[in-house]
Design a protein around this nucleic acid. Structure first.
Length: 131
DNA sequence: GTTCTAACA
DNA sequence: TGTTAGAA
């Protein structure tokens, strides 16, 4: 099938489909005219890619693990045991990122909280705090 | 009408 | 990622 059909059947834009191809996630063949030709199985590949993307993994990582993933019917499961350490490492990176944002948010909360009392004159308030 | 590449307010 | 221009 060509890109238009795959896009319709997966709900993924043609733009994204071409991008996945550039990233090595999809390997469509080409017609003499240069049109991309996808296999029936690519419908599932695209679904898997979307799931992993939604799970926060980047295309480079997905490219590596995709071949080892098995479709369980309701989701994806690691088909190779040596995948777990990498998946857990990825999870740890997310935790670090989340913690970083949490502290950033707390700091921003402090700035927001240091605001003049309701109804007070802003100019005067600023002058008193500025010295 | 569909797809391709390349480029960007 | 969306969108669009120009060509096939």
């Amino acid at each position: 099938m060509r890109i238009g059909e795959l896009a319709r059947r997966t709900g993924v834009s043609e733009r994204s489909l071409r991008y996945y191809g550039e990233q090595g996630l999809l390997a469509p063949t080409r017609t003499p005219a240069g049109y991309r030709v996808y296999a029936e199985s690519d419908v599932d590949v695209v679904r898997h890619v979307r799931m992993l993307l939604a799970a926060g993994l980047n295309t480079a990582f997905i490219k590596e693990v995709l071949p080892c993933m098995v479709d369980t019917g309701d989701g994806l499961a690691p088909g190779c045991p040596e995948l777990l350490p990498h998946l857990r490492a990825e999870r740890d990176r997310m935790t670090i990122a989340i913690d970083g944002l949490a502290t950033a948010r707390t700091l921003l909360d402090d700035v927001i909280a240091a605001t003049p009392p309701e109804g007070s004159d802003y100019e005067t308030w600023v002058a008193r705090r500025t010295g």
